[in-house]
């Protein structure tokens, strides 16, 4: 992952850009997309409770990584949809998914040791796709880029659609 701030800014930028097209996309809904960008990194729970620790405790194999896959995102975004009031469920699922998929896409560009990203498309396919290796996960460059994009898009949308 690049740091989470980069992901959240990307989610903010995407949702804000969509405001040009969708009237209902208020800051409340932009926030949902930002929250979606956090979803895949719930897999970082392994830093607190390692996979092997859970596996030992429960006596079955276990991996948090599921949360960072397409399948995991479908389930976690659905939790959001279930919690939303009826009129909003589709918007919430859509925006959470958009944020989460932008997160996975950004992670697919990371520089990795093997030159391939992790199998994020599970359970659709289980394969490490080649990555262009644009940046290291601990580099601040993506943060600067998404930060500038967020400010630019936000200013542009404010001009086109004064709310």
């Amino acid at each position: 992952m690049p740091d989470l701030l980069t992901h959240v800014l990307a989610g903010y930028t995407l949702a804000t850009a969509l405001r040009v097209r969708f009237d209902w996309l208020s800051p409340a809904y932009v926030t949902v997309c930002m929250a979606g960008a956090l979803l895949p990194d719930t897999a970082k729970l392994y830093l607190v409770v390692p996979d092997a620790a859970v596996a030992t405790l429960l006596g079955v194999p276990f991996s948090w990584y599921v949360l960072h896959t397409l399948g995991g995102v479908v389930v976690t975004a659905s939790v959001g949809g279930v919690l939303a009031r009826r009129a909003d469920w589709l918007r919430v699922v859509g925006l959470l998914s958009l944020g989460a998929v932008s997160h996975l896409a950004a992670d697919g560009l990371l520089l990795t040791g093997s030159g391939h990203s992790k199998p994020m498309l599970w359970p659709l396919v289980r394969v490490g796709l080649p990555t262009p290796g644009l940046y290291l996960s601990t580099e601040p460059t993506p943060l600067v880029v998404t930060g500038v994009a967020a400010v630019a898009v936000s200013l542009f949308v404010r001009r086109v659609r004064p709310s």
């Binding site: 389930v75 659905s78 939790v79 093997s114 199998p119 289980r126 394969v127 490490g128 080649p130």
Partner: peptide, 25 residues
């Protein structure tokens, strides 16, 4: 129900072996 699905997936994924032929090491 959804949390149950997720728990099943944690175990299902955890039981997968590395797959070097598909770049999973």
């Amino acid at each position: 129900l959804l949390v149950g699905c997720l728990c099943g997936a944690f175990v299902a994924y955890g039981s997968l072996d590395p797959l070097p032929s598909r770049n999973i090491y």
